[in-house]
Amino acid sequence: MLAAAALAILLFALPLIGLLQRADWSRVVDDLRSPASAAAMRLSITTSLAATVLAIALGLPLAWLLARTDIPGRAVIRALVLLPMVLPPVVGGVALLAAFSRRSPLGSWLYDAFGIQLTFSRAGVVLAEAFVAMPFFVITVEAALRSLDPRFEQVAAGLGASPAQVFRRVTLPLIAPAVAAGAILSWARALGEFGATITFAGNIAGRTRTLPLEIYLQLESDPQAAIALSLVLLLVSFAVLIGLRDRWLGGARP
């Protein structure tokens, strides 16, 4: 038992140690400052933040719908929403391509009517990242809404607050920790998105080549640069873990 558990710990620890050991610390900063790396980082930050905003804007009403209403087919809707969490991202990318490419009915209509092309564009990156990341936000917020005592909202309504006021002044503040956690979680997922992005938005330098794509590319030509960029994502992951430690690591939360 103990040996197997130790083996499991090694399985998680060894890759981490390998990454830190292989890094050439003298040139990490220079590697990160290279034009290609800097462009990928800038793109990743802007698209992942945009995807997070999209996940919040659409995910909040969706979580509310799933937690608080009795719409028919709710189980089906929830399964649909959670699908991207278990779906291979590359399949998600193929599916997005099938739905939104200029050869699809929806994609061609978007292009003809509004001149919007999602494939091979920055907007496509945001869409792919949101597709993969939003479920994390939705399940976190839905769980918080479910565990929230509905009587607080009833009290607020009884005091004369309209449904919008109740949501803004009572519901939202009470689930704020979960909204923040869900947002961080989906942002981290969006930042690391690879499969759906490369399949749907392609790999165009400066436009759709995000940090993970850049790492994959550099691994062939300049492994040290790839490791430097990997360290950045590792650092972000650690920061997220520490930020959410109360939720996951059994911290001070009662």
């Binding site: 009587r151 009833q154 009290v155 309504a157 009884g158 005091l159 004369g160 607050a161 309209s162």
Partner: peptide, 10 residues
């Protein structure tokens, strides 16, 4: 409820 003006202490 929001239009009833009924006060409640739970």
């Amino acid at each position: 409820p929001e239009q009833r003006r009924v006060g409640m202490v739970h």
